[in-house]
Simulated scan of single mutants.
Amino acid sequence: MRLSAPIYKLKRQAKRMARDKGIALHAALDRIAGAEGFRSWSHLAENANPGPAEAVLRQLAPGDMLLVAARPGQGKTLLGLELARGAGTLGRRGVFFTLDYTRREVEDHLARLPGQGEVMIDTSDEICAAYITARLARLDTPVLAVIDYLQILDQRRDTPPLAEQLAALKAHAMASGAILAMISQVDRAFDPASGKLPGLRDIRMPNPFDPDLFDKACFLHDGQVRTGRVG
């Protein structure tokens, strides 16, 4: 069944409804699902047209480093979580590193996503390239790791510049066969009224790095998604 809006937008509608009507979020989600023709939110999540994560997963290969970029509120974190949850379809373990969300927030997001894939969550303040590669090296299974998010990887003074960290992550992916997906902000100068999706030139770079370190890039805006090779 085709939805009237992408799932992430329906979730935003439910949050506004819960706030405005003073009801629990799960009740608001069920009301939104009912308006879309489903018995409940879980019924919607199980039966709605699959989101972009499935298509993105089909394009990934061992050793790939993927850039997932969008302006705030466009669903990039949701997509990252869906990729981590869907890692099992590639015979991999899903890992989600975040410097932005708490464990409870990540668990709450995952609880509302379809599927049952287990995701290892890491919210350590020590997250950087060296921390990530050391943690992944201790796992005895192929991984698909999502890192949230690129622009704050080098926020600590004791970590290398962002360009060096990305190079280290890419070297680890190539040597181990891991798949790494990096969530990224898009610069505020991007004009959403242009009718176009953002591109590599729109990535916010407070500290410069070489976009060619990424094999593929996925851009989201207003319900549209475009994934392709870099370079």
Results as ranks from 00 to 15, higher is better:
22 G>F: 08
163 A>F: 09
51 G>A: 05
55 A>K: 13
120 M>P: 00
115 G>A: 03
57 L>C: 01
155 Q>P: 03
102 T>F: 08
182 M>L: 13
123 T>Y: 03
165 Q>H: 00
74 Q>I: 06
163 A>R: 14
226 R>W: 08
79 L>Y: 07
137 A>E: 13
229 R>M: 14
108 D>I: 11
103 R>H: 14
204 R>K: 14
108 D>C: 06
76 K>N: 01
58 R>A: 15
199 G>W: 04
67 L>M: 10
86 G>P: 07
210 D>A: 05
129 A>K: 04
53 A>I: 12
89 T>H: 05
217 A>S: 11
139 L>R: 07
15 K>C: 00
166 L>E: 04
143 V>S: 07
31 R>P: 05
148 D>Q: 08
109 H>Y: 15
17 M>W: 11
19 R>S: 15
43 H>G: 09
86 G>S: 12
223 G>Y: 07
12 R>D: 13
100 D>H: 12
69 A>M: 07
103 R>T: 15
12 R>T: 11
114 P>D: 10
221 H>I: 08
164 E>P: 03
162 L>C: 04
147 I>M: 01
208 P>R: 11
2 R>G: 11
119 V>F: 01
227 T>P: 09
169 L>Q: 00
61 A>F: 11
45 A>M: 15
111 A>L: 12
225 V>E: 06
101 Y>I: 03
211 P>K: 04
108 D>G: 06
150 L>R: 00
55 A>Q: 14
219 F>D: 05
185 Q>A: 09
86 G>D: 06
143 V>A: 05
118 E>F: 01
56 V>C: 01
58 R>L: 13
15 K>R: 15
119 V>W: 03
135 R>T: 15
118 E>V: 08
53 A>Y: 12
162 L>A: 08
118 E>T: 03
147 I>R: 04
117 G>Y: 02
18 A>C: 09
88 G>D: 10
210 D>H: 03
121 I>P: 04
37 G>Y: 00
70 A>D: 04
58 R>D: 13
157 R>G: 15
7 I>Y: 02
66 L>W: 02
74 Q>R: 08
47 N>V: 04
3 L>T: 07
142 P>E: 09
120 M>A: 11
84 A>T: 10
205 M>R: 15
93 R>Q: 15
179 I>F: 00
52 P>M: 07
57 L>G: 02
118 E>Q: 11
76 K>F: 06
115 G>D: 02
41 W>S: 00
35 A>D: 15
198 P>H: 00
24 A>P: 00
22 G>P: 01
117 G>P: 02
11 K>F: 13
123 T>C: 07
94 G>K: 05
149 Y>D: 07
13 Q>R: 14
213 L>P: 01
64 D>V: 05
215 D>R: 14
115 G>T: 06
18 A>T: 05
78 L>W: 14
85 R>S: 04
174 M>A: 15
154 D>V: 02
80 G>M: 09
33 A>Y: 06
96 F>Y: 14
167 A>M: 06
24 A>Q: 08
172 H>C: 04
111 A>V: 00
117 G>M: 01
